[in-house]
Simulated assay, not measured.
Amino acid sequence: MTVDSQGTASAAPQDAPGRAAGKSQTPPPPSGAKESLRPPRGRRSLPSGLLPYLLVTPALLSMAVLLLYPLIRNVILSFQGVNKREMIRRETPWVGFENYTKLLGDPDFWSVVVRSLVVTAVNVALVMLIGTLVGMLLNRLGKKMRLVLSLALMFAWAMPIVASVTVFRWLFDEQFGVANWVMRSIGFSGYEQHNWFETGFSTLVIVTILLVWGSIPFVALNMYAALTTVGTELYEAAKMDGASGWRTFWSVVFPNLKPFFMITTFLEIIWIFKAFTQVYAMNQGGPDRSSETLPVFAYIEGMGQQHYGLAAAISILTIVMLLVAMSFYFRLILKQEDEQ
């Protein structure tokens, strides 16, 4: 019998305290704890280390079919003396390193290599400089003007290459070109029917303008996206210290966006170095093959001169040069990771 606080008595079973004690000693497990850890019946989970490889397998197979197999065939072709006669007779004579020794001893090949390197260096420098400035301008503009400029950049970036080459050929046309009209309007003589594609240098200048125009949107938009990750407090601290705009860029923007500049520069080097359509469609590598770059040189030797083995060797050497550039890039990446 128990007595409550108001003095009333109530009866309780004799074994109630014992049951309560027993229940308190073995509390029930949390509901759903074990059920969530048990896998559903009838299903087997994959090993944790196997799932990532299964997800990557389709991409690897696609790359092997679309990239690896043609690369292997191209390497094999570079060791064969396949010309027009061999193609007709379906012969594939092995010549070893003859194609490579012929190229490495050809002064025309080295002229094209130097020309390709100079064009790449000039284009990448201009693209990174102008693209960075446009990206910083996007970061400073208001919403409406930023939207207008971003749309203009996207339209320039989305224009097909052949269409853009056609527009540039019309701009620099001898008779109806805008470039000749502008030069005459500002007082220069001799531009009544000036041929802008008369020399290889002038042709490459026009190609450079086209490549820079087509590459700026990529750098500018990525630069603007990267600038949004830099905290405003860093700009305010630099402003309080009296830093100029140039000093703010080198002390605040560049250190924080160094990985962006590295990867973007590397991608631009690859894109400019292997640019083919812009150079070939502009003037077919002319006049007198004086505006050829390595991709155009390989195409003309293969499809134009029908020296297929030699063209394959040119493409392999081009890939080797890009691999050398990649090695420098990965070395910088590893060095930066060690510093961090």
Rank of each mutant, 00 (worst) to 15 (best):
306 Q>I: 14
316 I>S: 04
234 L>E: 06
331 R>P: 02
70 P>C: 14
177 G>T: 09
126 L>C: 15
107 P>D: 13
94 W>T: 13
23 K>P: 01
189 S>D: 11
291 S>K: 11
191 Y>G: 00
126 L>T: 09
254 F>K: 14
168 F>E: 06
332 L>R: 07
48 S>W: 05
118 V>P: 03
307 H>I: 00
296 V>Q: 09
167 V>F: 10
43 R>Q: 13
155 F>T: 11
133 L>I: 14
177 G>R: 09
280 Y>R: 12
160 P>G: 09
185 S>V: 02
62 S>F: 15
171 L>A: 12
153 L>P: 08
252 V>S: 08
15 D>G: 00
229 T>P: 00
159 M>D: 09
117 L>A: 15
329 Y>M: 07
61 L>I: 15
304 G>M: 07
29 P>N: 03
273 F>L: 12
203 T>H: 01
207 V>T: 02
98 E>Y: 04
9 A>G: 05
145 M>L: 12
148 V>P: 04
121 A>D: 02
168 F>N: 07
23 K>F: 08
35 E>H: 03
263 I>V: 14
187 G>Q: 06
301 E>N: 15
24 S>F: 00
220 A>T: 08
139 N>M: 05
250 W>S: 11
224 Y>T: 00
51 L>P: 06
209 I>C: 14
239 K>Q: 09
242 G>E: 01
235 Y>I: 02
310 L>W: 04
85 R>C: 01
95 V>S: 01
94 W>Y: 15
313 A>Q: 05
322 L>Y: 02
195 N>F: 05
3 V>G: 04
244 S>N: 01
111 S>P: 00
142 G>Y: 13
182 V>S: 04
172 F>L: 09
7 G>S: 04
115 R>N: 04
7 G>Q: 05
167 V>W: 08
308 Y>P: 06
336 Q>E: 15
80 Q>M: 15
326 M>T: 11
114 V>G: 11
102 K>C: 02
173 D>F: 10
300 I>E: 13
139 N>P: 07
314 I>R: 02
151 L>E: 06
242 G>Y: 03
239 K>A: 12
63 M>C: 14
85 R>V: 12
4 D>L: 08
196 W>H: 06
185 S>P: 01
306 Q>C: 08
282 M>K: 05
17 P>A: 13
313 A>P: 08
141 L>W: 07
280 Y>T: 10
325 A>L: 11
260 F>H: 08
259 P>Q: 04
320 V>Y: 02
40 P>K: 10
277 T>Q: 14
211 L>V: 14
188 F>K: 11
195 N>H: 10
162 V>D: 02
99 N>W: 02
291 S>P: 11
162 V>T: 14
195 N>A: 07
137 L>T: 14
310 L>A: 13
132 T>S: 15
112 V>M: 03
277 T>N: 13
25 Q>G: 03
300 I>T: 15
38 R>N: 05
169 R>P: 10
232 T>R: 13
280 Y>I: 12
53 Y>Q: 06
254 F>M: 11
105 G>A: 03
301 E>I: 06
16 A>W: 13
147 L>A: 13
165 V>E: 07
55 L>G: 11
222 N>V: 00
211 L>D: 15
85 R>S: 13
59 A>K: 10
319 I>F: 13
214 G>A: 09
289 R>H: 15
157 W>S: 09
271 W>Q: 10
